[in-house]
Design a protein around this nucleic acid. Sequence first.
DNA 1: TAGAAATATTCAAATATTTAAATACTAAAA
DNA 2: TTTTAGTATTTAAATATTTGAATATTTCTA
Lengths: 91, 91
Amino acid sequence: MDIKKIERISRALSDTNRIAILQQFKKKKDCLYCAEVNDLLDLTQPSVSHHLKQLVDADLLLPQKEGRNLKYILNQQVLDDYIASLNELKD
Amino acid sequence: MDIKKIERISRALSDTNRIAILQQFKKKKDCLYCAEVNDLLDLTQPSVSHHLKQLVDADLLLPQKEGRNLKYILNQQVLDDYIASLNELKD
DNA sequence: TAGAAATATTCAAATATTTAAATACTAAAA
DNA sequence: TTTTAGTATTTAAATATTTGAATATTTCTA
């Protein structure tokens, strides 16, 4: 993973609201709906949309349209790659 | 690791200059001198000092004074804890 | 002790991020 | 087809970050 990608993902993770979104996947298991994220955070809908966009732009979340709803899936592969890059710092 | 700590470390990692500093540890092995970081980055000394401070404040680097020089050690424990927190997102 | 070397701090300017209000878009439902 | 629900975009304000110039601090050395 190149340094720009590491930067992008790190920045996506550098906000408690976005970390809370990711942590919610542990509870909701496989997927999370946009509306659920709006309920989860104490922010207006546009702000939540902005945070979700950051996570999607970093490829941490994969969006999937379902009619007028939007479902997100955690991109475990990118998370694994990011973790692998961090592990490489340690040798 | 609490959410605020994850945020802090992620933010410290969200800059290519700071990532480059951490990557330099792989080449210099155990420790890195402040002056070496100044040489590494194409920034003025105060800017480098600022970046190093971010890494120290996130506990990713442990500073050690050696006379008027300053030596940094990579805090592998914090890095491990951070990685563990990221791994927890995946279950 | 005076001067030099290494690092930190202060300050200001430029840029980026976060947030919400207003509005637009898209797709389902009435 | 009009309305409604869900999500995105635009805009602007507040705040935070990044950077370098100037300066301060600390510690070594002559």
